[in-house]
Design a protein around this nucleic acid. Sequence first.
DNA 1: AGCCGTGACATTTTT
DNA 2: TGTCACGGCT
Length: 932
Amino acid sequence: MSYTKSQLKAISTIDRNLQIIACAGSGKTEVISRRIVEILKQKKSACVGPPNIVAFTFTEKAAGELKDRIHLHCREVLGTDRGLADMFIGTIHAYCLTLLQSPPQYDFLKYRVLDEVQQRLLIDRNSKKSGLTETPLLNGGHLERWKDSALYQQLLAILGEGKVEPKKIPRAVWEAFGKYHELLVEKKLLDYTKIIAEAVAELKTNATIKEKISNQLKYLVVDEYQDVNPLQESLIRELAGLGANVCVVGDDDQTIYQWRGSDVGNIITFSDRYGDVRQLPLNENFRSSRAIVETARRIAEKNNPDRLQKAMEHTDAQPYQRGDLLALGFKDPAAEAEWIARKIKSLLGAPFTDRKDSPPRGLTYSDFAILLRTVRRDAAPILAALDRNEIRYVVAGMDGLFDTPEVRAMSLVFFYLSDFAPKGGTSPTETDVRAALQSPRLGLPSGRLDAGMDFLKAKKTTIGDRMDAELYLQRLYLDFLEAIQIREVDINAAAGDASAGEIVFFNLGKFSQVVSDFEQIHFNTVPKDLYPSFSQFLHFQAPGYYPEGWEEAGLARPNAVQILTVHRAKGMQWPAVFVPALRKNRFPSKRQGGRSVWSILPEKAVTNADRYKGTIADERRLFYVALTRAEKYLFCTWAPIADNQQQRTVSDFFNDFTNSEHVLTKDPVVSTPPRIPEKPRREDITLNLSFSALKYYFECPYLFKIRFLYGFDTPVSRALGYGKSLHDALAEIHSESIAGRIPSGTDVPRLVDEHLHLPFANAQVEQSLRDAAHRALSGYINEHGKNLTKLEHVEKPIELKLDEGVVVSGRVDLIRRTDTEEVVIVDFKSDERAQKEDISQKQLHIYAVGYEQLTGKRPDLIEIHNLDKGGAIREQVDSTLLANTMDTVVEAGRNLRDNKLTRISSWCKTCEGCDMVGICRPRETAMSKKAA
DNA sequence: AGCCGTGACATTTTT
DNA sequence: TGTCACGGCT
């Protein structure tokens, strides 16, 4: 790999703070990863290693890609990638959570992180305690339960992550904010904002943490810096203040998340706010033709105020021919769509060269992308045209989960059970439910419908004042699916399509998560209230919160035209890009009306209030992102919508685009280009796996698919949290031991009090588990207390980089040494989390390989403790088993990639203990076997 | 040309 | 419930 001058400069600038201004397509990830490896290389003598480097990315996916590249460069440059598991590469949220949950901090171990849906459920369920209904509107009145909870979430985010002037905020709003945080503490919950806020607070006030970080953190890299919000910036500030060298990377022209509070000001004034900053622009674009680069550049430069000084330069990455860039208007969207479809057809097989040194290949479906401001409103005519022309495509974010027949049917099941009448309708009868279940999508013969209806009728009579384990929502949902014996293969057969079942199961799996989200917040509600309440949630709120239905679950990309929003397209590229629907009020989008946070907060109280609303400059940046996705062909089009008053005129952006001299406004008639065989671009996808996910794969590949690809969840239990609590207590015991403060039996009551957190237990369960926890911990200290002086690592991150972009990562509970200085890998089980020993053994052998990769040393022994029963299994690390295990892991990676996740061929022990067997195969009991 | 009342319409999404 | 397009009016 050869680098340009400015890339080399960026890579080798490691002793000063650095701001890399990365134009679109400038090889940013390559530069950051190579720079990190350069630090390892040059600073090795100064004892700087992986634990001293931290890199923040915007998404987990980006983290995976960066990790992969660092591994690659490490092997190239240093000859080994040993020890990389100790480098933190991930999102700011993940970093902060780790910080809050690492020794000597133990309080936050028992906290659970809410996602946005669960946060909203919590707010509504506790509408007063959460402060929701006590929040006043500026012109009178208060926020209302259910109706305004989404708005309240937005308010919480601005108050927590934005820059606000407390004095200018109504007192009652501030008090509500406080109440919400009390509620979080009471329930031991964190939300996305609070993770960061708490970490910042610790960094500001906790001397121990400060010292720890300041000793450890030497280099901080922040990717996508333009999308950082004020709270995140304050974290970066604190980390820099503790002595870290800071490198930020970003492009102010690509700030597109302003409505989430990101502040371009951060990147623009970086060099004024941090000392000794070297500013390096990466101007060369290695992605697109000169025409695209120059056209896009003019758009970015056009009256976008406050830009960083830079000038994107082309490198003739693609040859340009007149006609590659077109700006066309049509009489209506149908005509526009038809032209797009025909253009795609005419370009299929056109010769295209991915890189200057690679041989040409013919363009195929996956080389085309259609980028829209809104897929939901503008995709329809395009889909119709592609269908007519038999062009394969995938749409992201088109129809919601709740629009699919299978999820509608499941909602109806719950409406029926609770006699819930959807707005403007009546509650469904048996006939209605039956009709919904009869949808060919579910592939159910009538006999199974009968069984299903019988099941529902019987259950319905039991819904009353008393909770029964069988009435927990998830339990009932899974039992119902078992009653109708739904099977992926049957759906495939009914549809005559080998992948139809995957889509339906994916959606049913998502529905299982919907059930979980609701149930975890409403755990203590009696059935006769729980069911109607869940129905209301399904009807009024859930559809807006689970917009995504089926999307290829991220493993393989099909050879099809991609249709997606510009936001989602960020970071991607295609040989040919269409940007249709360039109408005024659409792109740039019209500001939305309605009740907003500005009905609660005075605009003066929030610095940069405008940012949240979005400006024309923000929209232009978005347009710029769209244009710079294209490598060679770029087509901007528009057409008026006759019956929509606001969508009848052309967008200013279309005219800006037309102003470029490279753009033709009429499709030139050219002789058909030569065609060569179509061939998809080889795409390296990285696959990130956790050890726990892999554990399921070892049990049964199909179970893995059900749990991790489809997302089916298991029913909650009252004991949930017990195993985790023990685990947390042990983490403290071991961490404190390493620090020289070895706990004794007298510490056990305190440890139990501190760590036992059973969110779903009743008094009786709580008491018995509390006793059990006492016994387990006392037993452990009695039996193994003598070993506590010889501990090496607690919760050690382990990472395995396999071939073909598969990375497996996880944590080892404990690594200790024996009296004879042998290394032992230790894993803890409790009855709650019990599993078959051979799986634990396999798992520990993977850890053994991981440990070897991390330290270069092979562990000698593996040990499995059973905390509830006491005692331990101990065996020697076996090199044959080690090799076998590796083979299995590699094979697992390959099967995942190829989507070969089939169930175990016949009923076996695994099936007996499997939570998901009901949607896999009929149960075989001892009785049924005898009968057969 | 500019004012004003009326009616039509309503985005993006990761942690 | 805020914003825009439209058309009637000055």
